[in-house]
Design a protein around this nucleic acid. Structure first.
Lengths: 137, 137
DNA sequence: GTTAAACAGGACTATTTTAACCCTATTATC
DNA sequence: GATAATAGGGTTAAAATAGTCCTGTTTAAC
């Protein structure tokens, strides 16, 4: 519970990997998957999500691959989470009200929403740039 | 992702329900399940977890049931989460290192740990007492 | 212009986790 | 002793996640 998905972990690793390679360098999914030791196909899905969100940019064709789509101080952990997992919903009723048996009488929706918002703020407070400093430093 | 489990939701509702009934009143699982409209058996498991953690107290036998085990300002949302879901692990390597393919070369463990800690602080900042004020007010 | 290396993405399968249920104790009241 | 409750182990069912497969498209190199 309250665990990040593997796809998100993959995506985060990929973004920092791209970042350390510099903006110019085009990196293939194969290279990243080999380097980091996880499924190429699955990482590929994560990259596609990141691309759609503008966090990564892709080059198609033979010499193709991915680069970052924005500067590292313009990408937050929250952006990556949103790109890969969509809007967060701490509780079920956030996804669909009918997933909650007691939607109409629920007392916690207010609290849960502010809690979710605070977690969001936490994620948005870290940019890839600041993450990198931790890694290098 | 980053969603609270149903068992936790049940537990939280149960705790606030008990709290509104007052410390003296012994409430059966059946009553709570009926009132809140969810599975009696499953809620029962949540109550057992809460009891083991001292958040709820139980009375066995015919007139038995549950009451709160502590005062409402002595129970935080973090306590309930811990009682029901155990120690939180935002990332897999927190559960078992061998669940992570790149444990030794991972760059994010530090960040993930502080992030988890901050979420923990967030949950610990809300007591059942303060939750109740929101509900009544 | 054909080939090959890469991304794009839909559809499917497998695995894991979560939720729910069943059944048998045990406890205590009447 | 009957009954109404908690206690809890074990099993099944459902849902979410992770991973695979396959086919198409793009483009560089030959």
């Amino acid at each position: 519970m309250l665990q990040v998905s593997r796809k998100f972990e993959y995506g985060l690793h990929a973004v920092t990997y791209l970042a350390t390679k510099g903006l110019g360098r085009v990196v293939t999914v194969k290279e990243m998957a080999d380097e980091m030791g996880f499924s190429q196909e699955f990482l590929s899905k994560a990259m596609q999500s990141l691309k759609r969100a503008g966090i990564a940019a892709s080059v198609q064709g033979v010499k193709g691959g991915y680069t970052l789509g924005k500067s590292t101080d313009n990408i937050t952990v929250a952006d990556i989470a949103l790109a890969i997992e969509g809007k967060p919903h701490l509780v079920r009723c956030g996804v669909k009200a009918d997933r909650c048996e007691i939607f109409s009488s629920c007392h916690h929706r207010g609290y849960m929403n502010t809690l979710q918002h605070k977690i969001q703020v936490l994620l948005a407070a870290t940019t890839v740039h600041s993450l990198l400093k931790e890694i290098v430093g």
